[in-house]
């Protein structure tokens, strides 16, 4: 396959990959780093791609796995919190939150990664349920129940705030 052919297959996927990466990382540069790693890996393993497989699901799966690897690595080290973060930690009680003016991204952040990813892949990237199952590497039924849980929890967060969500989970 020529470079142009690879480019013509890969490049149309880049905007979606960037959006998914940004939603996960919330940082322009880091998101593009993740996309770049995804594309490099895809190019390196191009021949291992199933000919008749789904390119879009394959790329999103690579990207999510790279993200999860970085997340795991990160978890074994520490995380630093700014003092501002401490002050914001009682956000759920401020008047703005009570009035229901919550950023949908804060709601997304309140979810575990697998729920965030299912919302993003299906609700934003318009992957089919089958493609999402492939990316998340779980059966179709799990995708559906995870989607249902994720939407329920996001709704609860948007309506009642973080404390309610935390309480319902613990």
């Amino acid at each position: 396959m020529t470079l142009d052919e690879i480019a013509s297959l890969l490049e149309p996927q880049i905007p979606g990959l960037r959006r998914y990466a940004w939603a996960l990382l919330r940082d322009d540069e880091a998101a593009d780093d993740l996309v770049q790693d995804t594309l490099e890996r895809a190019i390196r393993h191009w021949s291992q791609r199933h000919r008749d497989g789904d390119l879009r699901a394959w790329l999103f799966a690579i990207q999510r796995n790279l993200f999860l690897n970085a997340l795991r690595k990160r978890k074994t080290h520490g995380v630093q919190v700014g003092v501002e973060a401490l002050e914001n930690s009682s956000n759920a009680d401020n008047p703005e939150s009570r009035a229901g003016l919550r950023d949908i991204l804060a709601g997304l952040d309140s979810l575990p990664e697998e729920q965030r990813s299912v919302l993003l892949l299906i609700g934003v990237e318009d992957l089919s349920y089958e493609q999402a199952a492939q990316v998340l590497d779980v059966p179709l039924g799990t995708v559906m129940s995870r989607l249902s849980r994720a939407r329920g929890r996001l709704r609860e967060f948007m309506e009642n705030g973080r404390t309610a969500v935390l309480r319902s989970v613990k």
Binding site: L24, L25, R26, D27, E29, A30, A31, D33, L34, Q36, D37, L66, F67, A70, L71, K73, R74, K75, V79, Q80, V81, G82, E84, A85, L86, E87, N88, S89, N91, A92, D103, L105, A106, D109, S110, P112, R162
Partner: peptide
């Protein structure tokens, strides 16, 4: 490159921990 990803992750993990949608910062 993955350094940048790890850096942003710190922020993100925090978002989950503290519910601080903004204001959290990270450093090694």
């Amino acid at each position: 490159k993955m350094k940048g990803v790890a850096a942003a992750l710190a922020w993100l993990v925090l978002g989950g921990i503290l519910g601080a949608a903004g204001g959290a910062w990270w450093s090694e």
